[in-house]
């Protein structure tokens, strides 16, 4: 197992992140567990960071009380109350923001669904830990499924755009 972690993964991770935004580079297809775990952690953290920011903004605008329950409690999602509606909007905006983070951190079209689902599975587990039971309301499931879809589709679109870019072969050292 030691061999797995002996790689120069930091250098590779930075390069992956940088090159996805720039586009136009050959990329390693090797299985790199350290890189994947790091990507999952980064995505999970930024998911909660952005969700927190969006909820905070919308709370300030809508003059609701800011509370952690809004992130993790199923009863705070729904179309029948103003606060519930704002929350759903925060979730939707968050998944769009996370698609950009997905583009920057992962940058692979075929891995978008994988990572988007992983983030939401993480969130699902987070909800269970916070409330102590599995979320049961229709709106919680609805919101999250739509969020996965939004994040995947926008992420794939962004990644595909940079993956389609031409890879220049002349005038620079090519790292095949």
């Amino acid at each position: 197992m030691l061999k797995l972690f002996g790689r120069e993964w930091i250098r590779k991770g930075i390069r992956t992140a940088a090159s996805t935004a720039m586009g136009g580079q050959f990329r390693s297809n090797l299985w790199d567990p350290v890189l994947i775990v790091a990507q999952i952690i980064v995505l999970q953290s930024s998911f909660y960071l952005c969700l927190g920011l969006w909820i905070f903004f919308l709370d300030v605008i809508g003059r609701f009380d800011v509370s952690l329950d809004q992130m993790f409690t199923q009863s705070d999602l729904g179309l029948y109350e103003d606060s519930g509606r704002t929350n759903i909007i925060a979730y939707a905006l968050n998944s769009l923001t996370c698609a950009f983070i997905l583009w920057f951190v992962v940058g692979r079209t075929r891995q978008c669904l994988d990572f988007a689902a992983t983030v939401h599975i993480g969130h699902f587990i987070g909800c269970i830990i916070f409330t102590g039971h599995v979320p049961q309301t229709f709106w919680w499931w609805m919101t999250n499924i739509i969020c996965v879809a939004l994040m995947t589709v926008l992420g794939e679109y962004l990644c595909m755009r940079s993956e389609m870019k031409a890879i220049p072969l002349m005038g620079q050292r090519v790292d095949l």
Partner: peptide, 12 residues
């Protein structure tokens, strides 16, 4: 997570 697990499977 899928990539991680499928790679682990192949590795093992």
């Amino acid at each position: 997570m899928y990539t991680l697990l499928s790679g682990l499977w192949k590795y093992l």
